[in-house]
Design a protein around this nucleic acid. Structure first.
Lengths: 143, 143
DNA sequence: CGTTACGTTTACGTAAACGTCAAGCAACGG
DNA sequence: CCGTTGCTTGACGTTTACGTAAACGTAACG
């Protein structure tokens, strides 16, 4: 078993990064190892290897977190990949930077539209709920 | 062709509801007729029929709008159907009403979580964008 | 009267995102 | 040494949400 964490002051290794196994992260985030391997196949993750075994760093963990957040927003894995790529994109030339700014704005537009949709939906849930409570009080009275 | 709208003061029909063809609505919302028929097959829409031809009412149109909003939020058609069902649910008995209130709260939790995710993502896009503009000004200076 | 436009059903195809085996290697406990 | 546990790579199955094509009806247009 991999001795993990709880090693504070020793270790010859210069970087004291925590390392995780695939099942550790899977359990932590409530997903399957199959899903994680799939994300890797899609280029969303690229953990180190010890032999054939995957070793996830803290950075990998953050990326996974971002993937799952993207999923909650209903983004496809491809869209998530595009965002992740922007995170650690090489400087690049002016044209590419300008293109990237456009894509960023597109993403922002989608998210803001989505926030509006959420607010609308929440407002309608309020209406339904109050109607529901109304009926409930009426029904409860006749029991 | 169906003479639509623009008939204000006549018509023996008591309800002056507008009626739409499938292609009208499809064009209006930028989707395909195939999609609309699919939504119907999944129980999300149930337009009237004139012979075999579908006739959509204003109410059908609203439902379609809600379906598309749900889609933008990343909901599955099944989830959307559940929400729509709550819209026009029969009063029902107390137990069912209480169950419905729970489902409503679940939905609210998801949406609020989603809004938090959006705010986080927007904040990160800001960071990326400003870095992007930084580099761009640097690069632009050396041209 | 042919074709163009719009409507229908039925049915097979497809992309995305995994689920679910199967078969195999590696270490560790008893 | 043998079995359990945890990791690996295929590879095929499944669900969702349509796309796409075939084959047909019908109403208007020139």
């Amino acid at each position: 078993m991999l001795h993990n964490a709880a090693n504070s002051a020793n270790d010859a290794d210069s970087t004291d990064e925590e390392r995780f196994t695939i099942t550790q992260l899977a359990r932590e985030f409530g997903i399957t190892t199959r899903a994680m391997r799939f994300y890797e196949a899609q280029g969303l993750l690229s953990p180190a290897r010890s032999g054939t075994t995957r070793i996830y760093s803290a950075r990998d963990r953050v990326r996974l977190k971002l993937v799952l957040r993207g999923k909650r927003l209903g983004l496809t894995l491809k869209e998530i990949a595009n965002i992740l790529d922007m995170y650690d994109a090489e400087p690049g030339e002016a044209g590419q930077l300008r293109y990237m700014l456009e894509r960023l704005q597109d993403q922002r537009d989608v998210l803001e539209k989505q926030r509006d949709d959420i607010d609308l939906t929440l407002a309608e849930l309020d209406v339904i709920e109050s109607q529901c409570r109304q009926r409930l009080s009426t029904v409860a009275a006749s029991e």
